[in-house]
Structure formats: structure tokens, C-alpha cells
Design a protein around this nucleic acid. Structure first.
Lengths: 158, 158
DNA sequence: TATTGTTATACTCTATAACTATA
DNA sequence: TATAGTTATAGAGTATAACAATA
């Protein structure tokens, strides 16, 4: 039986975590968690979730894409896209339009309201990143972005 | 009604995503997703999940910690730790030990089997990172790790 | 036969709240 | 009263499979 030092159980000093923090993946998870939480805070007043923000951005940039293409871009199943598009359509941010020549699929387009919300939210997210990354210089931010981009390209579909 | 070009709907060329890829947070998410998926692949033969791998590492490094402390380290609720500790205990990787002086809490310790599995898995995860990060030089990997660490420290509990 | 969007369903992960036994 | 661990429950988020309409 171990006798615990009185200040061990209710202690506020953080535990050692060198076993985990030696890994880039663990640090990436911690950093992404911070970003994710702050993103949710920033998006709250817009009514968007992270995934609907992403979907809106893709539709704004790619008018008339199909739900299947949107699913590929978001890396989720087609069935999951239905509720995301429902959510954006109910908020009058995008619309499902008929496609001449293929009555199975929809051409998704952002509404004027959707494009305006995207532009406003884009600014909010830049401010969020300025906050989260305020400890890094402009060069360091670009370096980080470039390194992440390299990881993505190197491991994409391989 | 939009007439879709014949090669648009079933197209394999990736969509434009500059709207999202301008953000470090989005690139971080994509990179972490790749790492997470590859980690799950690597951990599969060990029987560990990412979260039980993390928990095991923390217990190995911090003998006799309580479940409440483990919850803080993992950034999840105490109730969630119960099933994680159950899982590790059932696999004979850690043990719940009595604490002299406080019969409410357990002192968690890794078993010999647990420490051996940790050592083996640590190597597997290093190999996984060598693979994922094979496009980066040693200096670039350290730069990435340092930048992520700075983001974490800058935004921790602030 | 294959594809698009849809629905129903299940599974994983996590949070919340209530409980117990101890302190 | 407060704390450690536990249990039950519910809520996200996502995947799987089956289906109707259309190609």
C-alpha cells in the first residue's frame, strides 16, 4: 500500500507528460484542441458550427457543386452532408438548385446572405487566429502553415 | 437552372479550397486527421486506442496518480476516466492500488506488462511519426514541434 | 447496373447529474 | 460540506446499410 504525500492527490502542479509530449502528434492534438475550442467560441454568434462554416466556405468558392462533391471535400459520408446542407439551407445561406441534364443531383449555391456571412465570418476567424497565434511572428506563422501543408501533401491518398 | 458540364459531377479533380486552406486551423485539422488515422492503424495490433495509449503513458510516467489527476491530464471528465482505467486494468496493463490515508481514491500504477507494452508502443509511434513526417528534415520537425509547443504554452488556461 | 440524395439505425466519444463512501 | 470514484443517461458526431428516383 502506497502512502500518498499529503500534497499529491489534490495538487495543482501539472503532471509530467514528457512521455506524450515527445510526440509531434500529441502536441498537434493539444494545439488543435485549443484552436477548436476558440473557433467554437468565435463562431457561436454567427450560428455556424465548424463543419457548417467549412461547408459554406467550400460552396461559396465552388458554386454549383453537388452534395457528393461536398462530402468528398469535407471528408465525410454523403449521408452526413444532408443535415449540413439542411442546416445551411434552413438558414437561407445556400440553396439546392436543379441541374439541367441530371435530375438526381443538386447544384449547391451560396445565397447573397450566405456570401455576406462568409465574408464577415472570414474576418472573425482571422481575428481568432491572430489571437491564438499572437505569440508567433508573421514569418513563424508562415513557416508553421508551410510545414503543415507539406505534411498534408506528403500523406494525401498515399 | 444550371447546366452542369458533363465532367463536373463525377469529377475526380479536387475542388478549390483556398477559402479554408488560408487558415492555419484548417491545415492543422487536416494534418491531425492524417496523424490520427495512421495512429489508429499503428495502435491496432497493440489493442490500445489513442486515449488508452495516452493514459498508459501518463500512468507509466506518474506512478500512483489518482483517477482525478489522470482526468486533468487527459482533459476529460472523471466519469470518462473510469472506462479507460477499466480497459487498461482488464488488460493487466495498470492496477488500482489502495492509498494509505485516503480510502476514497486509487493510486494507479503500470504493471510490468504495462511498462513493457508502453516501451514497445513508444517505438511503434516513433516509426509512425518517421513515416508521416518523412518529408520533413530533422530541423524542420523540431521547428514544427517548437511552434506547436509555443501555441500550447501561449494559450494554456488564459 | 450505377449513382444521388435520403432515411433509419447504430456506434463511439464525451458531458452532466446523481449516487456512495469516504474525508 | 467537500471530494474520489462510479453509474446512468443523454447528446454530439459520424458511419453503415437500405431505399427511391434517376442515369
Amino acid at each position: 500500500m502506497k502512502k500518498r504525500a499529503t500534497d499529491t492527490a489534490g495538487n495543482e502542479e501539472p503532471l509530467a507528460q514528457t512521455h506524450l509530449r515527445q510526440f509531434v502528434g500529441y502536441e498537434m492534438k493539444l494545439a488543435y484542441l485549443l484552436i477548436q475550442n476558440d473557433m467554437m467560441r468565435v463562431l457561436k454568434p454567427t450560428g455556424l458550427r465548424i463543419v457548417t462554416f467549412s461547408a459554406l466556405g467550400i460552396v461559396v468558392e465552388n458554386p454549383d457543386i453537388s452534395q457528393t462533391q461536398l462530402a468528398q471535400a469535407l471528408q465525410i459520408e454523403r449521408s452526413g452532408v444532408v443535415v449540413i446542407v439542411d442546416e445551411l439551407e434552413n438558414a437561407d445561406l445556400i440553396s439546392r438548385n436543379k441541374v439541367e441534364g441530371d435530375r438526381r443531383s443538386y447544384a449547391l449555391r451560396a445565397t447573397l446572405k450566405g456570401r455576406k456571412l462568409w465574408n464577415r465570418t472570414e474576418k472573425l476567424v482571422h481575428e481568432h487566429e491572430d489571437g491564438i497565434l499572437s505569440g508567433l511572428s508573421a514569418v513563424e506563422r508562415e513557416t508553421l502553415k508551410a510545414l503543415l501543408g507539406r505534411i498534408i501533401e506528403d500523406n494525401r491518398k498515399s
